[in-house]
């Protein structure tokens, strides 16, 4: 495997991890604010809620990681064909599915897998005029 191809896969993986970090932050905040007993948290001043939801290590780290994840393919694509971009993009859906199940313990139903398979197929076919 060419090293640039590996870089694209690493970029897709890091991008998936960044989404994971964003989701962890969202889960923590909905756990704080959505519970019936903690209605006070939902009524907290706007700036306080903004700080809790956005200015935390998970969101800041997530976007820092996303930046790195976006720069890596930018470098790699200088050396390999654009046609691989759609395939790597599709990999993102698969990585997210694995991380959601493994780390977040989200329930991945058969229906969800079927739907994502259709979406990935669509993304690949959509970009296939670049491939051919």
């Amino acid at each position: 495997m060419r090293v640039e191809m590996l870089l694209l896969i690493i970029g897709a993986g890091l991008s998936a991890v960044s989404q994971l970090l964003l989701k962890i932050s969202a889960n923590r905040n909905s756990a704080d604010g959505a519970g019936e007993a903690s209605g006070a948290a939902a009524k907290a001043p706007l700036m306080q809620r903004f700080r809790a939801q956005y200015l935390n290590p998970f969101v800041i780290g997530g976007y820092a990681l996303l930046l790195v994840a976006m720069v890596i393919p930018l470098y790699a694509l200088k050396f390999i064909d654009m046609k691989y971009a759609a395939i790597i993009e599709s990999l993102g859906y698969v990585f997210i599915m694995v991380l959601s199940a493994a780390v977040l313990r989200e329930r991945i139903t058969r229906r969800l897998v079927a739907g994502i398979a259709l979406i990935v197929a669509g993304v690949i076919v959509f970009g296939s005029h670049i491939i051919m």
């Binding site: 229906r111 969800l112 259709l118 979406i119 197929a121 669509g122 993304v123 076919v125 959509f126 296939s128």
Partner: peptide, 23 residues
């Protein structure tokens, strides 16, 4: 291109399936 249209149609079908399971 036809590939664009077919691809977009597949994606929409996938979105319908995924959203029917959105829990």
């Amino acid at each position: 291109t036809p590939e664009n249209l077919i691809g977009a149609a597949l994606v929409v079908a996938g979105l319908v399936v995924v959203s029917s399971d959105a829990r």
